[in-house]
């Protein structure tokens, strides 16, 4: 029996696969790769598999992690190649290995947030957005698990943010707190819409780039 971790990309069409559907997709992918997952021992046994930090539907990622247990003893070598022969478009396994660190040590998330302005980036948008995200307090409405709205101050959850202007687009490179509580980078848009409504972008794309630990080292 071995505990293993997959590092994978999720992008393009696969960005729309929901968390539960992704678990099912991996279970089937493991099965067709000939990997036997270890099952829980209860009355209704279920395979032991968990996604470390679920990715919101619609976002892309270069650094997703899924932990699972297989019945065989193995160090994960060869599994990535095997799985990549048959995955849905937009899913790509980068590595499979025995995890060295528990998921709890994942503390920060580095993401690219692209703000699209179809009619061109408004004048002065870049300095004004920089000012916005430098404020000591940035109260934004967030949907809670009970589906109602709650005010959260996202400023302390943003560890760093850099922005640059591109044609019809502002590119933000943001590092946010990942867990307990974490910040969904998509909320940057909500913050803009709330505090600088005239700078609300026409469309926002989020892509996770790296997970980091508390010290800023890559977590994988």
């Amino acid at each position: 029996m071995s505990k293993l971790r997959l590092l994978f990309q999720k992008e393009a069409q696969a960005a729309y696969i929901s968390h539960l559907d992704l678990l099912r997709t991996f279970q089937r992918s493991f099965a067709r790769s000939g990997l036997e997952l270890r099952h829980s021992q209860g009355f209704h046994p279920h395979p032991i598999i968990s996604i470390v930090l679920p990715l919101p539907v619609g976002q892309s990622s270069d650094c997703e992690l899924v932990d699972f247990e297989v019945t065989a003893d193995c160090d994960g070598s060869g599994i990535a190649e095997q799985m990549n022969q048959g995955l849905p478009a937009g899913l790509h396994v980068l590595d499979c290995y025995v995890p060295q660190r528990p998921a709890g040590q994942l503390a920060q998330l580095e993401a690219e947030v692209l703000l699209d302005y179809d009619a061109g980036v408004p004048a002065e948008a870049l300095p004004r957005l920089r000012e916005l995200f430098a404020r000591p307090e940035l109260v934004t409405q967030k949907r809670t698990k009970r589906k109602d709205l709650a005010d959260v101050d996202i400023a302390p959850l943003i560890r760093s943010i850099r922005m640059e202007e591109q044609p019809h687009q502002i590119r933000c490179l943001v590092t946010v707190q990942a867990q307990n509580p974490g910040l969904n980078p998509q909320l940057l848009e909500r913050a803009i819409a709330t505090h600088l409504p005239e700078l609300t972008p026409d469309f926002v794309r989020v892509r996770r780039l790296r997970f980091l630990d508390e010290q800023g080292n890559v977590f994988r």
Binding site: Q13, Y16, S18, D21, S29, V57, G86, L87, A89
Partner: peptide
């Protein structure tokens, strides 16, 4: 790409399945 975030169960409309 712009429509999908607003609709229910967007994975129905993307294709790309195994």
């Amino acid at each position: 790409e712009r429509i999908l975030p607003r609709v229910q169960k967007p994975a129905r409309y993307t294709g790309g399945e195994y």
